[in-house]
Amino acid sequence: MAQRQITVESEVGLHARPAATFVQTAAKASLDVTVAKQGGQPVNAKSILAVLALDVRQGDTVVIEAEGEGADELLDALALIASAP
């Protein structure tokens, strides 16, 4: 299981444009990928509604996880989106 911990830097948190880009990128991959607030329940990273409902704000740390071939590449791409200011 590959995993990344990222601090969200965007002023709007993981909402609006960052959330849409994050979910779109996750949805393109064939493997399962989850996102959770540190210490919280993981949700499907391909679900915009679930990601919005997490209510991730600027400065929050999120954990993203995926398993399978290409998991590292996918997580790197998602980490880049989530950590972009």
Partner: peptide
Amino acid sequence: EILRAQALMARDPGL
């Protein structure tokens, strides 16, 4: 931007 996010909501796999 807003409409793109709305389209993602309609296509939400969890939903």
